[in-house]
């Protein structure tokens, strides 16, 4: 605690039975749980794609250039996130703020792409939640992922703002790292969704 000013406060947080910080361990447990969460959603989508392969002309609906672009964006945001965590650990606040800002900016572009994609599907392609089973599973799966992205942006944005206040302390680097773990996880979920929801539709069996 505060009494040991001669030690690095980040190292103090590691003084647990296992040597892993409490918040980080809880976050990894949460991510394990989230694997099941998205696993169930992705299974629902894949099962109905498998049972009803021809329910919609999916290739006509999808716009792989846009999705490919937003995938790049999300991967880049993950790179910036890793740099923010690194900067936070170095206690280089200006660098951390720029990288966090960049992460949030790219996250917002990704969300913008998704909003555009959704309205394009609904208004131009007549794909809605209740137009077909494909619409139901697609929107709920990608929408849930989008909600995760939005929550991540909110979370990272909170730390960006907080870092400008004098309440930001050395040990908050851990909190930025934990928020970063969440952000990276949202990114890996998208890596899976991009492959199994979008790309495999383009394979001609």
């Amino acid at each position: 605690m505060s009494s040991h000013t001669d030690n690095d406060p980040l190292e103090e947080l590691k003084k647990t039975s296992t040597g892993v910080e409490n918040k980080k361990l809880a976050m990894w447990a949460f991510l394990a749980s989230d694997c099941m969460f998205f696993g169930t959603l992705i299974s629902t989508h894949l099962i109905y794609r498998k049972v009803y392969p021809d329910v919609e002309d999916v290739i006509d609906i999808f716009d792989i250039e846009l999705t490919g672009f937003s995938t790049f964006i999300l991967l880049m945001s993950s790179f910036l996130m890793a740099l923010s965590v690194s900067a936070a650990h170095k206690n280089n606040l200006p660098s951390m703020r720029w990288c966090l800002g960049g992460t949030i900016f790219f996250g917002l572009i990704f969300l913008g792409c998704q909003v555009y994609e959704f309205q394009h599907f609904v208004f131009d392609k007549d794909l809605t939640l209740s137009s077909s089973i494909f619409g139901s599973t697609f929107f709920v799966l990608t929408g849930t992922h989008g909600v995760h992205v939005a929550l991540g942006i909110f979370w990272l944005g909170s730390w960006l703002i907080y870092s400008f206040t004098d309440r930001y302390k050395r040990e908050n680097a851990l909190d930025v790292e934990v928020a970063g773990l969440y952000w990276h996880f949202v990114d890996v979920v998208w890596i899976i969704i991009f492959t199994v929801v979008y790309l495999v539709e383009y394979i001609e069996f």
Binding site: S78, F79, M81, A82, V85, E177, G180, L181, H184, F185, D187, V188, I191, I192
Partner: peptide, 10 residues
């Protein structure tokens, strides 16, 4: 997937 969790996620 593994690259992100192995390096980015420390």
């Amino acid at each position: 997937f593994l690259a992100v969790i192995w390096w980015f996620m420390h």
